[in-house]
Computed example of a mutant assay.
Amino acid sequence: MAVTSFNFTTLSILRNSIQNLVYSRLSQTHNKTLSLYAPIHSFPLANRPKSAGMCQLAQAIKGDDEVLLQGVADRSTVEAVKNVLEMAKRASLRREVLHTNFLTPPVLKESLFVLEKLADVKAIAQGGYPEAERCRISVGHAEELTTSPDIITALSITGNFSFQPCSHGDFLGAILGTGIAREKLGDILMQGEKGAQILIVPELADFLVSTLDKVGNVSVSCARIPLLALEYEPPRTKSFKTVEASVRVDALASAGFNISRSKLVSLISNGDVRVNWTTVTKNGTTLKTGDIISVSGKGRLKIGEINQTKKGKYAVELIREV
C-alpha cells in the first residue's frame, strides 16, 4: 500500500512538472503577443490550472479583446473599435505603422480609450486641424511611431455659389457621387459663397481633383491646398437652461430646438435625429452631460450640466449652435 501511495505521488509531481514546462515554452513562443496586454493580464505559473496548455493559452489571448472592449461605453461602436484594436495588434507585432480610415467621433473616442491600455502601442489621431470631428488614427509600436505621419490631404472646392447656395449635404453628396466612400472623407468646412474645403485620404486626392466638376447645379474646380491654409471658425453657440420632467431625448431636443414634442417624435420616426452621431430609434432614449443631439435641418445641441431639483425634475444646460 505504501508503494502504491509513493507511485501516485511521484506521478502527480511528474505530471505537474511537465505541464508547467509546456506552459513555460508556450509563453516564450507567444511572448510578443502576450506583451501587448501586459497591463491587463498576468498569468503567474503558480496560479495556472493544472490542465493549462495550448488550447487554454489561445483562449486567454482571444479573451483579451473582450476584456479591453468591456470599457467601451457606446455599444453601437464595439465592432468598429474591435477592428481598430486588431489593426493595432498587427502593427505592433510587425513593428510597422498602420492607419485607419476617417472615424466618426464616437468610434474615435472609444478607440483611443482602448488603445491607451496596450503596453507596446502608440496611437496618434489626426483630422487636419485641431477641432476636427472626423479623424484618422495611426497606430504602431512605440519605437516606430515617432512622428505624426502625413496621412491627410486638404482640397479646396470653389465655384460661384452667390446665386445658388449649396449646403453641407450638397457637397457631401457630390463627393460621394464620384464613387468615394464616406470613410475616406474627413470634415467638410463650408465657406459660404466661395465653396468649401475638405479633408481626404491622400491616395484619392488626385482622383477627386480630376473628377469633381459640379456641386448641385454649380460648376466647380477642385485643387490641393496646404493644411495650414484651412479656414476654420469654431461655431458660435448660445447657452440656456430648461427644467424638464426627464432627460429623455424627446424632452430635451424639443426644448433645445424649440419644436413641439409631437414634431420631434415624428423626426425620430423618420430617422432624422441622432445622438452622438448615431440615429435614435426610441423616444425614451436618456441623455447625459456631454451628449450631442443633431436634427436634420436644425443643427446641433450639446447637453451641458444636469442637476436634479428639489421637486424631482431636471435643470439642464443646453448649448446650441447658432
Rank of each mutant, 00 (worst) to 15 (best):
V249Q: 03
K288V: 13
Y232C: 07
S221G: 04
T309N: 11
V249E: 07
I306E: 08
K241W: 11
I259D: 04
L199C: 15
A223M: 09
A253K: 02
A229I: 01
I293H: 00
I259Q: 02
W277R: 07
N276S: 09
S221D: 09
S260K: 05
Q308W: 02
E305R: 14
L301M: 14
V218S: 03
T289Q: 14
V265W: 01
L267D: 01
S219F: 06
A251D: 15
E231G: 02
D250S: 05
F207K: 05
T211E: 09
Q197P: 10
K288M: 08
A255G: 10
T309D: 11
S254I: 11
K302P: 04
F207Y: 13
Q308N: 08
L212W: 04
I268T: 10
L208N: 07
A205K: 01
T279R: 07
G256T: 10
G192T: 06
N307I: 14
K238W: 11
I198E: 09
D213P: 00
P234S: 13
D213I: 05
V243F: 01
I225Y: 05
S294D: 03
Q197C: 12
G256S: 11
K238H: 14
S296D: 00
L212G: 02
V247A: 09
D213Q: 07
K263D: 10
L208S: 07
L228N: 12
T286L: 13
D272L: 04
V295I: 14
T309S: 13
I259S: 03
T285Q: 13
G192Q: 02
N283L: 01
Q191A: 12
L267F: 07
S262V: 13
I306W: 11
S254K: 04
F257Q: 01
V280N: 03
T279P: 03
S254T: 08
G284F: 13
L228A: 14
G256R: 08
V209A: 05
S266L: 07
V249G: 05
N307E: 15
N276T: 10
P234Q: 12
S269V: 05
W277E: 08
I303P: 09
S246F: 11
V201R: 12
V265I: 07
K302E: 15
D206E: 15
I268L: 05
N217F: 10
Y232G: 05
I200Y: 04
F207C: 01
R300Q: 07
N276L: 06
L212H: 04
V249K: 01
S266A: 13
N276W: 05
L301F: 08
K298R: 13
L208D: 11
D250H: 09
G192I: 04
P235V: 14
L287S: 12
S294N: 07
R274G: 00
V249D: 03
L208F: 07
W277G: 03
R236D: 14
T242V: 15
G192M: 02
